[in-house]
Write a protein that binds this DNA or RNA. Structure first.
Lengths: 150, 150
DNA sequence: CCATTAGTGGATAATTAAGTCCAGTTATCC
DNA sequence: GGATAACTGGACTTAATTATCCACTAATGG
């Protein structure tokens, strides 16, 4: 549904949004987000090329968000590393299908719903929400700071 | 988003729903749906094991729908061959997260939206809808009968 | 019962996604 | 400017998905 790569990217971005005081290295991000460091390096490259994060080399370098978390949506991150693909033309390549048939119209509609849903949440919101809601504990993403989660 | 295998399964099911007069062989289905025959055989096996279709061997054999198309949803088909996976627990395996964090709550919610959307359409509806709607031609799934598509 | 038709199951190959490694480049600090 | 820190890019491995092939079994009709 949502690829492993996109999941990793989201964790990394959320972490960066939560740690804006200084650039975070691939190693640091990898540890907190439980993503294989070597692979995360690739994912971060991808985020960097897409302009979502800024990479700084050398001592005290690392990654920082390229825009404020309030202007960065979950969809932005997903699209940067592993785009949701809308169905724009008949997957069977049938000539007669100028518009989508009912089947593919519905499948595309499902993708659209996901797009819409993910576009509605900013990264900032994800970090603002935790605490208690109606008595239920909503854990902070990555858990790092809420309590001693494993 | 939706796997190739699920797409293939849907095409096959739609075709079976449209051809209920006689069992359809893997070869026949493969040709109309433009699915590689060898692979389709596997997909059909999967649908058969899930109980969505009935397999008949021997001469005049082939596959038939195991239930009426009006009682078969798009979701049923997808779940049979390549299930959408809801996020029920923290993907990082964090102990402290009894409930999902805001990030994964949203991702799971997106999956739920897809489930809901796909559950709302029956296979019968897909075949009933084609024709003209507000002057726009809605092609029949697989196109086979509407006109000489490709 | 025999020939033919058609699904079944297993083994295997090709492609893509995920993950690993390492040498190379850039930046910082002393 | 040399040592060190950290991203970059490329080559490579592993795992999962997609796809192919073939021998086997079951059903039909004559």
């Amino acid at each position: 549904m949502i690829s492993q790569t996109a999941e990793y990217a989201l964790r990394a971005i959320v972490y960066l949004a939560d740690q804006q005081t200084a650039p975070q290295t691939t190693q640091q991000i990898a540890e907190v987000t439980h993503v294989p460091a070597g692979y995360l390096a690739k994912v971060m490259q991808s985020l960097s090329r897409s302009g979502l994060v800024h990479a700084q080399r050398g001592l005290h370098g690392g990654f920082t968000l390229a825009r404020p978390a309030t202007e960065l949506t979950v969809l932005d991150v997903v699209q940067a590393v592993d785009p949701l693909r809308r169905i724009t033309s008949c997957p069977l390549g049938l000539k007669g299908h100028m518009s989508l048939c009912p089947l593919h119209r519905r499948l595309d509609n499902a993708v659209a719903l996901v797009e819409d849903a993910l576009r509605k949440s900013t990264i900032a919101e994800l970090l603002a929400e935790p605490g208690k809601r109606k008595g239920v504990v909503i854990p902070k993403p990555l858990c790092s700071a809420v309590e001693e989660c494993d």
